[in-house]
Structures are given as C-alpha cells and as structure tokens.
C-alpha cells in the first residue's frame, strides 16, 4: 500500500448524501513535503473531501490513501499520522497555553518529558513565553492561530490539514503564519491547506480548485494562471467559478 513519495492519493473519490453528490470522483495526489492548496467556493465540497481524508467520513466510492493508509479501513492509523487545525475550533478557550499543549501532547502519546521540552521550545519560537499561563480566550486571534498550528504538528505528523487557518487574522500575522507553514514543509511535513485569501494560494506548490464537487483545475499557481490567461489566482478562481454560479443554490 505504501507508495513512497506520495502523502495523499485519491482516485475517483466520491461522497453522496442521498441524491446529492457532495464530492464527485475527485482524483489527485499530494507529494511528500508539498504545500497543497485545496480551494473552492462555499459548498463546493471541500469540507466533505477533507473529512473523508482525515477519516471522519467514509467515502461512498473511489480509493484514497493518506500517509499510505486506506481511508476506509485504516482510519486509526491515519489519525495517528496527521495533524488537523481549523479556523472554527482548535484550542480550548478555558485552558491556559501550557495546559493546551500538555493536553494535545498527551492525546498523541508524547511522554511528560517530551511535552515539557516541546512546550519550552514552542513558546520560545512563538515568543509566547510570557503567555505560558494565560487562558487561550485572552489571547489575540493571531497568536491563537500560530499556537494552534504548532500544536497541530506537535507529534511530528507526516501530513497536516489546515482548514482556513488564517481567516480574519491581520495581514502581518497571516504572513508569520505562512512562515510556520514553510518551516514545517522544509522539514518534510506535507501541508494540505484551504483558504479564502487568493494571494495565499500563490504560496502553495500546487493548487486544486473545486467547483460543484469536482476538481475543475489542478496545477502550480503559475501553471493555472497561464492556462486561464489570468494575472492573479483571484482571476483564475473567478473565471472557474463564475459560470457555475448562475442559479446559485
């Protein structure tokens, strides 16, 4: 099963809810260490696709492996080898920074001494040492998101899934966040990321754009701009999604 060089492989992956096809035979692969942008309009099927990949939802048909594990049968192994962070939920607001790190470290089976070392390392790197005992709810959003990302990769996962990690974050922090992503990627972590900021899609090695449950385009940002005769990813996105939006439901 384990194909060296690929972190994610999906072939004709499909999810139906009754008559509604949320994800329609999508085929793509993500190389190890790659930063892969997974774009699409609201309701295009992004969230459903991610849920299948991280083992929260069983596909209706098709094949997919994540970190070499089958998404039908080996979801436990998948969960052990990935990190996940979303804009909506990531950290416990009523726990302190230190307690959150300890909790997630514990969830992924890190030993007490490992957790202690990681905590010191993380806080130092993020310049959050003074905030060690502060409640998450009292931190600015940008700090939370950076911390959440660092915690999502605390167990050195092979792949990290980021669902709109920078929504609403100020422009400087947003860029610092991407520095963290680059850093993880350079250490060999595969990054699978969704975003509504089109300029961020340019930071990805490759980008796919979902429209109505299908992958309508997949290439490097440069390649996509060439194919669609566009000067920016924003334009590419509009050109792809616009015709489908007539009769928006």
């Amino acid at each position: 099963m384990n194909e060296p060089g690929y972190a994610i492989r999906a072939e004709q992956l499909t999810k139906r809810f009754g008559d509604f096809i949320a994800v329609n035979e999508i085929t793509f692969d993500v190389k190890q260490g790659e930063i892969y942008g997974f774009l699409g309009a609201n309701g295009a099927g992004k969230t459903t696709a991610i849920r299948m990949l991280i083992g929260l939802l069983s596909p209706s048909s098709g094949i997919a492996t994540v970190a070499g594990f089958d998404v039908y049968k080996e979801t436990e192994n998948i969960k052990r080898n990935i990190g996940y962070m979303s804009q909506r939920f990531s950290l416990y607001e009523d726990l302190t920074v230190k307690e959150n790190i300890r909790f997630y470290g514990g969830v992924y089976g890190l030993s007490s001494s490992e957790i202690r070392d990681k905590t010191d390392f993380l806080l130092k790197k993020l310049e959050l040492e003074h905030a060690r005992n502060m409640l998450i709810s009292s931190l600015p959003l940008g700090w939370k998101q950076k911390l959440a990302f660092s915690i999502a990769v605390i167990h050195d996962p092979k792949i990290v899934f980021l669902d709109e990690p920078t929504g609403g974050v100020d422009p400087i922090t947003r860029r610092q966040f991407w520095n963290l992503i680059y850093e993880a990627s350079s250490k060999g972590v595969t990054v699978f990321v969704t975003t509504h900021y089109m300029d961020e899609s340019e930071y990805c090695d490759r980008v796919s754009i979902m429209v109505d449950g299908r992958i309508a385009a997949l290439d490097t940002p440069r390649g996509l701009k060439r194919i669609f005769h566009a000067s920016s990813m924003d334009e590419v996105f509009l050109k792809l999604a616009r015709p489908e939006k007539v009769g928006d439901i």
Binding site: G40, A41, N42, A44, E164, G167, G168, H196, M198, D234, F237, L238, A241, R242, K245, D248
Partner: peptide, 11 residues
Amino acid sequence: TTGVDAVSRKE
C-alpha cells in the same frame, strides 16, 4: 463577506 467565497463576495 466573511467566510464567503470570492465570487459571492464580488457580487
């Protein structure tokens, strides 16, 4: 327009 995709935002 928060959380709304680029197309809907433009409209």
